[in-house]
Amino acid sequence: MNYEKQKVRILLVEDEWLIALTTQQILQDAGYVVVGPAPSVRTALELIDSDRVDVAMLDVRLGKDTSFPVAEALRRQKTPFLFMSGYERQDMPDIFNNYDIVAKPVLPAILLEKLSSLMTEDKC
């Protein structure tokens, strides 16, 4: 799949506003369009329904909830995504074994690299 950078829409799910703000800036600086950021499962699912989402970045912990329902929805519609969290692999459900986990705090360079590799991998 070939992505035009200007057109790639990234769904950002992150409950910590300052982190969301910072990440959003990194992504926007790199030329992506940020959908969100969404602080909750409800908002994220609404955005998936209403907007085009090409790629997604999910924080695992959203307040008391986890972003697994969002991940499940994305997996089902075959939208590539990665987790961005302090969680380790062993803390994750097995069905998401194939998805990458970027540890927080993440360096902008690594984040962008992961993103682009996610988009070049033909996962869809």
């Binding site: 409950d15 910590e16 506003w17 300052l18 969301a20 703000l21 602080p39």
Partner: peptide, 10 residues
């Protein structure tokens, strides 16, 4: 801005 966004977001 921080106050406004933090309150609205969190």
């Amino acid at each position: 801005s921080l106050i406004q966004q933090e309150v609205a977001y969190t």
